[in-house]
Design a protein around this nucleic acid. Structure first.
Lengths: 241, 241
DNA sequence: CGTGAGGTTGAAGGTTCTCAAGCTTTGTGG
DNA sequence: CCACAAAGCTTGAGAACCTTCAACCTCACG
């Protein structure tokens, strides 16, 4: 079970919510569904069934090439959901799948509409979409202009901040329920090279990664290697305009 | 001057607009500003000044690494604009610059709000945001899982469809006012390797690229090489839900 | 205690990069 | 209209980074 609602935790970082808003959010998260790892929640080409909201675990957006190569294009961690306006499109251009065991909700279009009718919520939710786009842009520079080891370092820095926002980090350490193959499909590398790059990160004393748990041993060092500027995540400007 | 308004042309692909809607759009495009190539329209770290709308020419979103490496994360071609809700964020996480000579508008937040108060327009504009996200995802798979030559082939296929939507293509041929260095910063390659890959595309009889004009000689061949599926652009579902 | 998924290692090869030089085109001032 | 400069394009050579393949190891789990 989820202790405190990660959706609420996340949205509160982005704007003040009334008690009523919070209650509405808690309400829609009532009946989360447990899903095993490696299960598709939405499939490319099919009509979107609703907004997918992750309450626990790691899911991802991905696409496959015909040769079977997979590119993961985003992680959905607790508190994340896929595009609000997804119902505007006739078919999914990508798939969504769980990477670990997850608790997920599917929000029907009318539920989403109801959320967007509450001005404070609408504002925060729109902001979330913007942040997701910013996040994707950072992934683009990661794939286009960073070396293997920098890509991994950057990913770990990003996840630290994102998971911190929902209370899943303690002591610069968090659960990372991904295989090296998953990391490879995220960073555009082969899993062999991910393995070797991870060893470099370990060898440099920057991280420890064992049994699906990541410890960041030298955060400043890791951030410097990744050239990480957390501003793009905009998770700290609580009172911002 | 722009013959017919590319913004209107583009939006009409995505949903029916009333004459009044069209008139409003035409109205806001009145005083476009001419901008030379290579000029920043918005800079990373600064507060967003408004929604940038391109009426003619090529602009781009980009980020720089501290070593000077540039990654272009999106093209803004005629009819494209940057995020509608950009005013929700306190600062830009990336820069926007012209690549060629351009005609651009900066729409003040209240103008955007006025547009979003018109239901049909709001719906279409939300859809545009969704398509832009889909486009970015395709760029992610391009950088992560395609070879140099495939990246270029895919980019050229994409631009063909996007420019067709605003009437800038005739006979599988369009103006491409980009340098090889620009293409390199788009595809995450070096300009030397872009040069060699272009030669391969020419040698295979797929394209002709001279004096900033691209001719696609063998579209099926190019699409096959790029594994191009234009569905992600969603530019054909004119009557779609 | 066997099985399977995931992690690790080595070797060889391919793709892409960097550097550096020469060439071509474009634009500008005389 | 020419000459020149600057920007962009092309080419070669060598090196770095990353991939592939294949084998082996390890650990969790039934």
């Amino acid at each position: 079970m989820v202790l405190s609602n990660p959706l609420v935790r996340k949205l509160e970082h982005l704007g003040a919510l009334s008690g009523a808003d919070r209650a509405v959010l808690e309400g829609i998260c009532a009946e989360a569904r447990h899903v095993a790892p490696g299960v598709d929640l939405a499939r490319e080409g099919e009509a979107p069934e609703g907004v997918i909201l992750v309450l626990d675990g790691f899911a991802c957006r991905y696409k496959l090439r015909v040769n079977g190569a997979r590119q993961i294009m985003a992680y959905l961690v607790p508190g994340n959901f896929c595009d609000l306006d997804v119902a505007l499109l006739p078919s999914m251009d990508h798939s969504i799948a769980t990477l670990s065991a997850c608790q997920v909700m599917k929000l029907a279009p009318d539920v989403v509409e109801m959320l967007l009718e509450r001005p404070a919520l609408a504002r925060v939710l729109r902001k979330v979409s913007l942040l997701e786009a910013a996040n994707m842009r950072e992934w683009l520079i990661n794939l286009g202009r960073r070396s293997a080891i920098e890509r991994l370092a950057h990913l770990f820095c990003e996840l630290l901040v994102r998971l911190q926002a929902v209370g899943l980090v303690s002591d610069d350490r968090y659960d990372l329920p991904l295989t090296q193959a998953d990391l490879a499909d995220t960073t555009g590398l082969s899993s062999v090279h991910v393995n070797r790059s991870l060893q470099q990160l370990r060898g440099a004393g920057l991280i420890e990664l064992r049994s699906r748990n990541l410890a960041i041993l030298d955060l400043p060092g890791l951030e410097e290697m990744a050239e990480f500027r957390q501003s793009y995540l905009h998770l700290k400007d609580r009172a911002a305009a």
